[in-house]
């Protein structure tokens, strides 16, 4: 009896040690950035380069997040509610950018939009994605859209399809049932998706670096600014960018977890 109790205690202790180790490691890593970054954060905020990076990051991330919404809402709905031939294959393709290292995604985008007929055609139309701000937006969109899709698919899957069906018997066509029932019920999931996609877009580095390059005061978002300032040894500015990025990530994570928790508590019948 005693022996059994001892084994259980040891088992619990081992789990506790692992949890404590990883939690402690993460907290200390993040605190280091805060400790280095906070003292000069206020003065850095008046630095022209940091201001440029903040503005560009917000501008690009907001637009790329909007693009993610525009594409993800109908696609997620279709992938959950509609049946079609080759659906599994399409699903795998849509999730593929998530599996690609961002830098590889960036190279792929650089090839398509760079030296191909398609790239040149777009360039003639004024849509120049290579080494430009538009490239940053495109890279953020390409890398993040699968995350938005995944959150939205889970959200829509969690909404009982009979709500829509009842709405149809009450006179709604498919589009009305979607806009009046499914979309309002998916609100929390949609907002959670927007927050997480936006936070990832703000921090997007690899793909944007490949497609848009790292040009000071031109394609300099916060992560690119961090990279450039680390390379030139300007630790103060680098830490300022890092601190801002961490604050954004942490706030987004808390909002996401709060909204995601709320979403699973509703929209299901018979529970």
């Amino acid at each position: 009896m005693m022996q059994k109790k001892g084994i259980n205690t040891v088992f619990t202790a081992i789990i506790a040690i692992f949890i404590a180790l990883l939690t402690g490691f993460i907290i200390s890593a993040i605190s280091m950035i805060f400790m280095k970054g906070f003292p000069d954060l206020w003065t850095s905020l008046f630095n022209k380069e940091i201001q440029f990076a903040i503005k560009l990051s917000f501008y690009t991330s907001v637009i790329s997040t909007l693009m993610c919404i525009i594409f993800s809402v109908p696609i997620a709905y279709g992938m959950v509610r509609m049946q079609f031939w080759g659906k599994k294959f399409v699903n795998t393709v849509l999730e593929m950018p998530m599996a690609l290292p961002p830098i590889v995604a960036g190279v792929a985008l650089l090839i398509i939009f760079g030296n191909t007929n398609f790239g040149r055609f777009l360039s003639e139309l004024g849509l120049d994605f290579v080494f430009s701000v538009k490239g940053i937006i495109l890279a953020q969109f390409f890398v993040n859209v699968p995350y938005m899709l995944r959150v939205l698919k889970a959200t829509i899957q969690n909404i009982d399809s009979r709500f829509e069906f009842v709405a149809r018997t009450l006179g709604c066509n498919r589009m009305q049932a979607f806009f009046k029932i499914t979309l309002p019920l998916a609100k929390n999931g949609l907002v959670a998706g927007i927050v997480i996609t936006w936070a990832r877009a703000i921090g997007e580095f690899g793909a944007a670096l490949m497609l848009a390059g790292a040009t000071r005061l031109k394609t300099e978002t916060l992560p690119i600014s961090l990279f450039l300032n680390m390379s030139t040894g300007d630790l103060k500015l680098a830490m300022a960018s890092a601190t801002i990025l961490i604050i954004i990530s942490l706030v987004s994570l808390f909002v996401f977890q709060y909204l995601d928790g709320n979403q699973s508590n509703q929209s299901r019948l018979g529970c």
Binding site: D160, R162, F165, V166, P184, L185, K187, Q266, L269
Partner: peptide, 12 residues
């Protein structure tokens, strides 16, 4: 008109 066993009232 359709009434389900668990009613399926629109929760929002």
């Amino acid at each position: 008109g359709f009434v389900y066993q668990d009613y399926a009232l629109f929760p929002h």
